[in-house]
């Protein structure tokens, strides 16, 4: 691995924008296009939103982000120690949401999948969720 950063922050919505900016700033050294950078920011935003809103259900927790650079590849790992996802396959279906009353669109994983090259979701009920995403900068 050429380089990496690790950050952790309280699961507060106000930290979402910070998470996007930190990852984008770190990835900038690979000289990505504006579109590539926007893709990564959006995917990070979705993963962090999931951790704050779903994993911790607006209760206090910690969100961990690791960003690795390997050649031209970016790997972003977003991790929480929240309630976990019972059925990952179902959660990844487009438009599936457990919170329709809060107007959640159920598109988080679809956006991550579309904007990044690979997406892997590992979750254990009661233990937490890890989202691993990669994208090659062209």
């Amino acid at each position: 691995m050429d380089n990496y950063i690790k950050i952790e922050f309280k699961s507060k919505g106000v930290n979402e924008s910070l998470a996007r900016i930190v990852v984008a700033a770190f990835v900038s050294r690979l000289d990505p296009t504006l579109d590539e950078l926007a893709d990564i920011k959006t995917a990070v935003s979705e993963a962090v939103t999931n951790a704050i809103i779903h994993a911790y259900d607006d209760e206090e927790g910690v969100v961990y982000i690791t960003c690795e650079l390997n050649g031209k590849e970016v790997k972003v790992i977003v991790e929480d120690k929240g309630k976990g996802i019972e059925d990952v396959k179902q959660a990844m279906q487009p438009l599936f949401t457990t919170k329709p009353e809060e107007e959640r669109s159920g598109m988080g994983f679809t956006v991550m999948e579309t904007f990044m090259d690979t997406l892997e979701v590992i979750s254990q009920k009661g233990k937490g969720t890890t989202v691993i995403m990669t994208k090659k900068i062209k």
Partner: peptide, 12 residues
């Protein structure tokens, strides 16, 4: 910038 939360706002 907008993520999928914005879609929820629009549809609502």
């Amino acid at each position: 910038f907008m993520d999928s939360s914005g879609i929820g706002v629009i549809i609502g």
